[in-house]
Nucleic acid binder design. Structure first.
Lengths: 206, 206
DNA sequence: AATTAAGTTGACGCTACCGTCAACTTGACG
DNA sequence: CGTCAAGTTGACGGTAGCGTCAACTTAATT
């Protein structure tokens, strides 16, 4: 049996929770070490971190990652929830809470920007750098749907400038992520001030 | 004598204008073809275009580019003025014209964004992707100085929100360039609308 | 047309990453 | 403690780009 799973990414059945489908002890240990190393590496360098680096950090060979996870995609699928999904879900939940439409939209934007600042891997999700990962695609879609809904509600309440589309919002957030990825990281003060500029630019023109 | 020039980038003396320092006829022809190919390639793909591609388009071997220009840097130096410098200079001149400080700042931002939209190589200059090219560094500095001056004058006239710095402006323009570089090119209508958002976000808060 | 300096280039070695496989090692079980 | 399927890995071949050099070609000069 080919160990690496082409599509599902969980060859031995090492789902985030139930990693019990009869893995030999050493293999189970390696899975854990690789996951931990991947989380650390993705956190520091984004989802494009060379697999050999992750393997070295986990104390295994690159080939073992292919054996256990089937490649980068499977590895991403195995850790993206813990790395980004949980936080994104919290943010979207907060945005779905009843309340003032503008406050909710502003909170969403602020929260996403904050996540991008803290977590390079989130930028990869927002950019869909690895669109073939089912998990990433799902999270991307969820975020997109939330943004669309918030924009629509804000429009209906008249608290968002009329000519602003959901795509404009998406574009602004992605551009922000790209800047974080490619430019020296701004200090928090500057970053937050620019966040305020963005929010201000979205208010209805007086 | 080593042909490729380490620092000045013009080995045979093939300055933009006076390419007369005794190049053999075939070599002079090659220089012209390489320049033309580089301009076309940089225009389409930015300053990172593989040299082998440019060489092929020019009908020469990659090594000839190294012989005549000393590598990517020299090649950039040889064409960046024609490719970007001229337009940037026009833009800066327009911004230095006497007139309403806000109009001038807004025109500068609009013009730079427009140039970025039309010319990928301009984005490389704004990003300083190749900081070792003297020409590129010079253009970058000139643009930066112009931006700083415009921001200062706008502040003095009270037409720019007080908490906006020149770095904020730089960051916004660079993020815009990054988005153009890494995302599907937006249509003109969307792009211009977002430009208006940016300008609006810079006005003093009421 | 002979000479030769100037010019060109194919082929090479280098870096950095990916993905694979035959051969080896080892945990688990009788 | 032997057996062997499960697991690991070093080494390999592939891609994509860079920069260099010895060997070859050719324009210019006499």
């Amino acid at each position: 049996m080919t160990p690496g799973a082409g599509a599902d990414g969980t060859p031995g059945g090492a789902d985030t929770a139930t990693s019990a489908t009869s893995l030999r002890a050493d293999a189970a240990r390696n899975v854990a070490q690789i996951r931990a190393a991947a989380i650390a590496a993705f956190h520091g360098r984004g989802l494009g971190t060379p697999l050999e680096e992750i393997a070295a950090a986990a104390g295994v060979s690159k080939a073992t990652i292919y054996n256990r996870f089937g490649g980068r995609q499977g590895l991403i699928d195995a850790v993206i929830e813990e790395l980004v999904g949980a936080e994104m879900r919290t943010i979207m939940e907060r945005a779905r809470q009843p309340g003032d439409p503008w406050e909710r939209l502003a909170a969403y934007i602020t929260d996403v920007r904050d996540l991008q600042y803290r977590e390079p891997a989130a930028v990869d999700v927002h950019l869909m750098t690895y669109p073939d990962s089912a998990q990433v695609a799902a999270q991307w879609n969820a975020g997109r749907a939330t943004g669309i809904a918030l924009v629509e509600q804000a429009h209906q309440a008249g608290v968002l400038r009329a000519d602003c589309t959901a795509d404009d919002l998406y574009q602004a957030l992605v551009a922000n992520g790209l800047a974080l990825r490619h430019l020296p990281k701004p200090n928090r003060e500057d970053y937050d001030r620019r966040g305020r500029f963005l929010l201000d630019s979205l208010r209805p023109r007086p």
